[in-house]
Amino acid sequence: MNWEEVKRDVIAYSRQIGIDKIGFASAEPFTELKQRLIAQQQLNYQSGFEEADLEKRTNPALLLPGAQSIISIALAYPSKLKDAPKSKRGERRGIFCRASWGQDYHHVLRDRLQKLEHYLQERLPSAELQSMVDTGELSDRAVAERAGIGWSGKNCSIITPEFGSYVYLGEMITNIPFPPDTPIEDGCGTCNKCIEVCPTGALVQGGQLNAQKCIAFLTQTKGFLPDEYREKIGNRLYGCDTCQTVCPKNKGIDFHNHPEMEPDPELAKPLLRPLLTIGNKEFKEKYGPMSGSWRGKKPIQRNAILALAHYKDETAVPDLIGVLCNDPRPVLRGTAAWALGKIGAPDTGDVLEKAKSAETDEDVLKEIEKGLSLLQNR
């Protein structure tokens, strides 16, 4: 079998089904990555969302016995929101990160990988294949780097020469001996913009991220947000794009290659106040198709409260009082109490004192005290 010829055919077919870039890597263990992951664990820099078994994360043969190569794919997503609605007084808006615009990318990439699987199985009936996207065991970025899709930037994203870092990644382990591609040389050079502007200092150094401090991670947590990060969230409802938007390699990059990735401006940048009382059914109908909804509505509602505090939006005070007095979830009641103190509208002290007398949850009571303290220190 002429594997170079098969590889060329696979590349041609990938373009037909809407894969923007494809690369091929060996299925050798990722030994260097393993050492980095061990260090990350020791430093407690991991988010906890990752696969816990480091052997599975770094040895493709454990996921597919007889693995010989890995196919890496990349799909470019939009970076600019057309007809973006304006956030204005009384109608403040939050923002979902670009990677959450449009249809959930997991579904989009799985569709492309499934088509690629069917093609390979028809062409090579003995082919054994194992595909994954984001939530799989392997590191998408490590595979993409080895496959020559792009280099691993200081912002911990894969940066491609063609599409910048605005790409979704997926991979397929195979028992096919595809000739590997050559990794791309690092293109970051002496640039440190992403490290310098990271809002929480989560980028410890080039290529090393403390996920526990990363806003993209923090927006997905479900508990009370630590005090030191509340004001740094800004109006972000899910994710953070700062380390990408400042990257010189992303300047002028904006691809609209895939209809299913096109964002609805009203969902990508929604009004904040309606989010506080949105029901489960409406939330699933509106936001369910977006990847940013995977943790449910509670983190997004908490972040919406923090965003209203960020704007010091007095028009939202009645909504926040409603959450404080009526929401059954302590995290939202407590965050609303803190936000009311932050906004500092007239009579807020009376509202907080009344809520304090009726509240039984210790965590919420602490947040009410924080709100009262903010009022006193204005």
Rank of each mutant, 00 (worst) to 15 (best):
E4D: 13
I11S: 11
Y13M: 12
S14P: 05
R15C: 09
G18Y: 00
S26E: 08
A27Q: 03
P29E: 00
F30M: 13
F30I: 05
L33S: 07
K34F: 11
K34S: 08
Q40T: 03
Q41D: 09
Y45C: 01
Q46N: 08
S47P: 01
L54E: 03
E55V: 04
R57I: 02
N59R: 04
L62W: 04
L63K: 04
L64C: 06
G66H: 09
Y77I: 00
P78E: 11
P78W: 07
S79G: 13
S79D: 03
S79R: 14
K86L: 15
G90C: 12
R92Y: 15
I95G: 02
F96P: 14
C97R: 09
G102S: 08
Q103I: 13
E117C: 09
E117H: 06
E122Q: 12
R123I: 02
S126W: 07
L129G: 04
S139N: 12
D140K: 01
R141M: 05
A142K: 03
V143P: 10
A144Y: 01
A144D: 00
E145I: 04
A147F: 07
I149A: 02
G150Q: 02
K154Y: 06
K154H: 05
N155K: 06
N155M: 01
S157L: 11
I158T: 00
T160E: 01
G164P: 00
Y168S: 00
M172I: 00
P177L: 04
P180R: 09
D186P: 01
D186M: 08
T190M: 08
K193L: 07
K193W: 13
I195G: 11
V197P: 02
P199V: 12
A202R: 15
L203N: 12
L209C: 10
N210L: 07
C214A: 14
F217V: 10
L218M: 15
T219E: 11
T221G: 06
F224T: 03
F224L: 15
E228M: 10
C240Q: 01
D241T: 03
C243V: 12
Q244L: 13
Q244T: 13
K249L: 15
F255C: 14
P259F: 08
P259C: 08
E262T: 10
E262I: 15
P263S: 10
D264L: 11
L267W: 15
I278Y: 07
N280Y: 11
K281V: 14
K286Q: 15
S291N: 06
W294A: 12
R295W: 13
G296H: 05
P299M: 12
I305N: 04
L308V: 04
D313C: 02
A316N: 07
L320R: 09
C325T: 06
D327K: 01
P328N: 07
V331C: 05
A336Y: 11
G344I: 03
G344A: 03
G349H: 01
L352C: 03
E353C: 09
A355G: 10
T360Q: 08
D361C: 03
E362I: 07
E369F: 10
K370M: 14
G371T: 08
L372D: 06
Q376C: 12
N377K: 15
